[in-house]
Design a protein around this nucleic acid. Structure first.
Lengths: 244, 244
DNA sequence: TCCCTTAAGTTGTCTAAACATCTGGACATG
DNA sequence: CATGTCCAGATGTTTAGACAACTTAAGGGA
């Protein structure tokens, strides 16, 4: 089964084999893979080598492991849509899943050079920071850090408590309809805070989306950084203005 | 330096330390990190543990390693822009870098169920597949697989040879102006073909963008899958129709 | 001078072994 | 019946050592 001559590393061969078996439905979503010791026996490889192979499958989002229990086949990715107008709550409801959110923290800081550029304000101006953890079907899905000018949104910290959606809040209390102006996409491995909040291992990449929103006149309303679980989502962007 | 009691794994502590040192400019881009054996001595950790820490930095795109030479600090990410109208060549020129492309392969297949849905054609229809490798400053940057209906673009395989940009070709030969309609973003670890073509190790994630382009009447022109080096790029999407 | 060999240094892969930490069930105790 | 304890089995981390593959530079022979 595993060739030692081909010049291809054993762990790469094994992860390829398991990848194929999962793809072909040999192991169904939710089902447990053979244990590391079992795979070690079956393929005549050291457990350490087995772990390298499984580590790759984890990073690909194909499987997840629970310490003390085992390794399981993951479900397929959630297709998450973004456009100028769509937001988290509507996007998740659209695909028939149940969204939820929790405000982790809110505080005020001085803008500094980078944020002042992003928000187009003075670097001495105050900025409200909102940290929100969002769930899909009770599973942590993404973590958003929002930055808004304190001057333009006075008392927003008081209003946000108990509110579901930040965008509804902006609309109702301040009469502003925020629309996504640009988003940048990056990839990284999780920092330890990501691992805690999103409940993932160090091998699952995170998709980092940095977005700027503007109001109808073109003024910058919000800058936010969202970190998605890479194993759970595929993000779709629609380029036709109205979006869906 | 490294605590054995805190409950935080040594390799995580070390990757945190190195991450900070790089961020603070202790190691400049392009400069070599201490060798694994040197770090092993310095932090009193096994070389295997050192490698786990460096593996994380690789996945974060902070460093890259060359077998037999060493580990080096990576340059900052290229900001790659996409919108309805921007394309690879213009986007790279915009940031002052030099783009290049090479046609790896072109062939014809039957659409099948998935492609027929993506291109809105019959599943028995023929589809032209173009595989293109793109470079920035001579460095492999992304790999694109394009699918186009053979019926709508006869002889495209003959025309593509020697042509720089697929989109100019569509415009000149077929009078069609292709515009990006939607793109989806996913994360994964590289397959072995990615590792070969993009010249990356197994620890560097790839950013997978699947795009559909339409003509001015709204007919689907092209479906393509592009796999970017996650350590090299951040992709920015502009939601205002005209884009830049 | 030019080319080849050699050796040292570096990263890549694999094995072996030990201990830590977590899960789940069996079992004893109240 | 409820609870706590213990143990087997699973994954997580770390160490030690070996060899392979690659890079670079030094040295030797034509």
């Amino acid at each position: 089964m595993i060739s030692r001559e081909g010049g291809i590393a054993c762990y790469q061969q094994l992860s390829g084999i398991l990848h194929k078996q999962i793809e072909e439905g040999e192991f169904r979503p939710g089902k447990q893979l053979p244990t590391e010791t079992e795979l070690s026996r079956r393929y005549k490889l050291n457990r350490h080598t087995i772990r390298q192979a499984i580590g790759r499958l984890q990073s690909e989002g194909l499987v997840y492991t629970i310490k003390g229990k085992g390794t399981f086949v993951a479900n397929s990715k959630i297709s998450y849509k973004v456009s100028r107008k769509t937001r988290f709550t509507t996007s998740v409801l659209d695909v028939g899943l149940s969204p939820d959110a929790r405000l982790l923290d809110s505080y005020e800081i001085s803008a500094g050079s980078e944020l002042s550029r992003k928000l187009n304000i003075k670097s001495s101006d105050k900025v409200v920071v909102l940290e929100i953890l969002r769930f899909v079907n009770k599973i942590p899905f993404c973590h958003t850090t929002s930055f808004l000018s304190s001057d333009r949104f006075p008392d927003i910290q008081a209003h946000i408590k108990g509110s579901f959606s930040l965008y509804e809040l902006l609309k109702k209390h301040y009469g502003i309809e925020a629309m996504r102006a640009s988003s940048s996409f990056e990839v990284s491995l999780p920092e330890s805070s990501d691992m805690d909040m999103l409940q993932i291992s160090s091998k699952v990449p995170v998709l980092i989306v940095k977005s700027t929103s503007k109001n109808s006149k073109g003024d910058i309303v919000e800058y936010c950084i969202t970190r998605f679980r890479g194993d759970l989502c595929s993000i779709t962007v629609n380029f036709n203005g109205e979006g869906r």
